[in-house]
Simulated assay, not measured.
Amino acid sequence: MRTDSAPSAVYVQSNERDGNQVVVFRTSPNGALSDPGPIATGGDGDGVPHLASQGSTTLTGDARALLVTNAGSDDVSLFAVDGDGPRARGTTAVGSAPKSAAEHDGLVYVLNTGDPSVCGLRLTGGGLEPIAGSTRALEAGADPAQVGFSPDGSALVVTERATNAIVSYPVGSDGQLGDPRTWSSSGQTPYGFAFTDDGTLLVVEAFGAAKGKAATSSYATTGGDLTPVSASVGNGRSEICWAVVSDDNRFLYTTNFADSGISRYAIGDDGSLTLDDAAAGVGIAGHTGLRDEDLTTDGRFLYALDAESCQVFGWSVGASGSLSPIGSWGGLPATVAGLAAD
């Protein structure tokens, strides 16, 4: 969590083909957003609405840097985040159509969806430096959705939608990846995922966009193994794709694109999942749109991007995990994607 006096903000990327931008919304003490301002990433988006990924716009663990993938120019942009707001630090080539990035203790891995592959970089004082020999190819046609580190940084995880698989690589002290291990997902079309602080892996399952089939599974991660705890706990909704865990590790919030709802799951001490509220938050009732989401670092507010209405919706988070709407803020392009909250 940040310890300096830099203002809190919500970040999304425009994903525009003729020049990608990161749009910065300042947050007020009551969670309201204001003063949206675009900053050029130095790269290009793919110009296609509904960028298929989780983690295309992400903050580093200390919230002092922002990573934005440029799917159209095959690179990733780095921004320093401080009291003066984000400052562009340049772009680094990574691979074909990067759409997800993750960071742990200065180590960055980017998911390229055109190859498909993952590649490693180091966050240094001079910017992002590629790690020689770190690129690892994924299975052809895997249609990967997200890359992410385990809480202790010992494993790198990728979800593969087309193969219904979860792939985990051990991470060496030099940043290189070991041999991958692959597990079958408990449910079809594993998409976004999140970890609890103790290492429980929570993966949402879109089930090929089948109506009413959205679900989430949890897995224990011990010694490099992935063991199902709760398998495909449904929420009765559709096209679930994005996931975020509350700061106290008690709740998982998932967005359902097809019906604009945020579902809340309770997380047990053993990593088990129970559906608490299928519609804990709603963007525009009866409409499609909600996708990328994030919680502020203090856990007080949750924001989600509505890609259809080109707005960001916000909710305050109650002690029991309840969500209370605080507003919405628009004016974003139709290609808008990704969301990170400080």
Rank of each mutant, 00 (worst) to 15 (best):
M1E: 14
S5V: 01
A6C: 03
S8N: 10
A9T: 08
V10T: 02
Q21L: 08
R26M: 08
S34F: 13
T41K: 11
G42S: 02
G55P: 05
S56L: 02
L59S: 09
A63L: 07
L66K: 02
L67D: 01
T69F: 08
V76D: 05
S77L: 07
F79M: 07
D82A: 15
A88I: 09
R89A: 15
A93M: 11
H104S: 12
D105L: 14
P116M: 05
L121Y: 08
T124V: 07
G125Q: 12
L128V: 03
P130A: 08
P130T: 11
I131D: 07
R136S: 06
A140G: 04
D143T: 07
P144D: 12
Q146P: 06
V158Y: 02
N164S: 14
P170T: 00
S173T: 13
L177H: 04
G178A: 09
G178F: 13
P180D: 06
R181N: 03
G192W: 04
A194T: 14
T196P: 10
L201E: 05
V204N: 15
A206D: 13
A209I: 06
A210C: 00
G212M: 11
D225P: 00
D225H: 13
T227K: 15
S230I: 02
S232Q: 14
V233Y: 02
G234P: 07
I240K: 00
C241E: 08
V245N: 07
V245A: 02
D247S: 09
D248A: 03
R250F: 07
Y253R: 05
Y253W: 11
T255L: 00
D259V: 14
D259Q: 15
G261H: 06
G261L: 05
S263V: 10
I267V: 14
G268Y: 03
L273A: 10
A280S: 12
V282Y: 11
G283Y: 06
A285I: 11
H287A: 15
H287P: 00
H287S: 15
T288Y: 10
L290D: 05
D292H: 14
E293S: 13
T297G: 04
Y303R: 02
A304V: 06
A304M: 10
D306A: 06
V317T: 03
A319Y: 10
S320Y: 09
L323T: 12
G327S: 06
G327R: 01
S328F: 13
G331R: 08
T335S: 13
G338F: 05
D342A: 05
